[in-house]
Amino acid sequence: MSLAISKIDLTDSCAVWRRNSRVYLRLWKTELVAPIIEPIFTFFAFGFGVGALVTSDVEGLSYLSFVGAGVLAFTVLMRTIFEMTYGAYFRMVYQSTYDAILATPVNAESLAFGEIIWAVTKGVVDCLFILPLVVIFGSATSLFTPLSILPLIFGCIYLGGLGLAITAHVYEIDYFNIFFALFFSTLFLCGAWFPIEMLPGWLQIVAFIIPTTSVIDLCRACLTGNFAVKHIYESIYLLIISVLLLEWALRSIRKRMVA
């Protein structure tokens, strides 16, 4: 059995990507509100609000430095997941955009990949707006700060793949509620707001299995310059999960659309 990833035609995926970017450029003013407003208020809440209660250092960092990676990853990943769930579902079911595209030489795999690289692009664009805020609020102290885009790209691929695969299995929009209940629950465990070492042992294992934990940890390493051996393992884990979920998304879209 051949891999779905091997069936991707990059020129076709690019055509799908360009369709989405054209719509984005038309709506760019509304699209950019969230990635600017959200992190500012998250910094207010966690940096100044919760941060005021945290007097000791967290993993050798001030709380504001610690929480920066969480704010950055939280905003970027959230955009990706919404784009690949509700956004993709609208295009697939309500607008039948996928149907229209699949009547052309573009195959299901290239369509799905085009959608995912679009979600990644949106994440990266958001990241470019949030990073200066992270610097302004004093959370980025290292010269490696721009590198934090890399773990976020893989975070977007993994969550984009997961989101699109789930979307391909959803036949009623309300089913997203179950997925989001699980997804939001994991976000509180993945080391964005406190070190996962504070959790009981078994819950730490759960936290490490959630790939978002690796994304945030790697982001934090880039923002603060505190690298460790565990970051190599986290990178490998994130890479493997991204490829697996990408493959699952491609297969799921084919199964849903070509039947």
Partner: peptide, 17 residues
Amino acid sequence: RSLIGVVPQENNLDPDL
């Protein structure tokens, strides 16, 4: 698919464009 043109039953024009 490059040799055929498909006119579907349902309208699937792109409302975003």
